[in-house]
Amino acid sequence: MLAEHFELIETIGLNLFFAFIFIFIGLSINDVMKKNDVPKMGQFVVYFVLFLGCAGFIAKGIIQFVWESQGVG
């Protein structure tokens, strides 16, 4: 059974890994900004850029899913 579903398990594991990496990056950035008294506008810009990176991975996953369901990839 494991050999049959290896690709699915690998995909889920990789997606969870990226989610945890983004969470840890966000927590470390939050800690650095709190210790250095970064203004609210600076915090907004930093979190917005972090969100754009995360949104890129989400968009990639959606595009990949749509293409594979249509037989393109």
Rank of each mutant, 00 (worst) to 15 (best):
L50N: 13
V49R: 10
F48H: 12
F44M: 11
F24D: 06
F65W: 14
M41L: 15
P39Q: 07
V46I: 13
A55G: 12
A55W: 11
L50Q: 13
N30A: 05
F44T: 12
K60P: 02
I23V: 06
L2G: 07
G26V: 01
V49Q: 07
F20D: 03
F44I: 10
N36V: 07
G13S: 05
G42E: 10
V32G: 13
G56A: 12
V32W: 09
Y47A: 12
P39M: 05
A55E: 11
M33F: 03
F6A: 13
E10K: 00
G61R: 11
E4G: 10
I25W: 05
A55P: 03
S69M: 09
G13R: 02
K34N: 10
F44Q: 12
I62S: 08
G73R: 07
F48S: 14
E7F: 02
K34L: 08
I23W: 07
F18K: 09
F65G: 02
N30P: 00
F20G: 06
W67A: 14
I21F: 12
V45I: 15
N30Q: 05
I21E: 13
L8N: 02
Q43P: 00
L2Y: 03
I63R: 06
I12E: 04
E10R: 00
E10T: 01
V46H: 04
S28R: 09
V45C: 15
G73Q: 06
M41Q: 12
G42Y: 07
I63K: 09
F22L: 13
Y47I: 04
F18G: 00
V32N: 11
L8A: 06
A59C: 15
F44P: 00
I58A: 15
F24C: 07
N36Y: 08
S69F: 08
E10H: 01
D31T: 11
F65D: 14
F24K: 05
I62V: 15
V45T: 15
V49E: 07
I63D: 12
A19G: 06
D37N: 14
D37G: 13
I9G: 01
D31N: 12
G13E: 04
G56N: 09
F57H: 05
N30G: 05
L50T: 03
F48P: 00
F6W: 06
W67Y: 08
M1A: 10
L2P: 01
D37Y: 12
I25S: 08
G26T: 02
V66R: 10
K40C: 06
F48Q: 10
N30H: 04
V49L: 11
G53E: 10
H5C: 01
L14Q: 01
K35A: 11
T11L: 03
S28W: 02
C54W: 08
F6P: 00
A3T: 01
Q70R: 13
T11H: 01
A19W: 05
L16F: 04
Q70K: 13
I21R: 13
I9C: 03
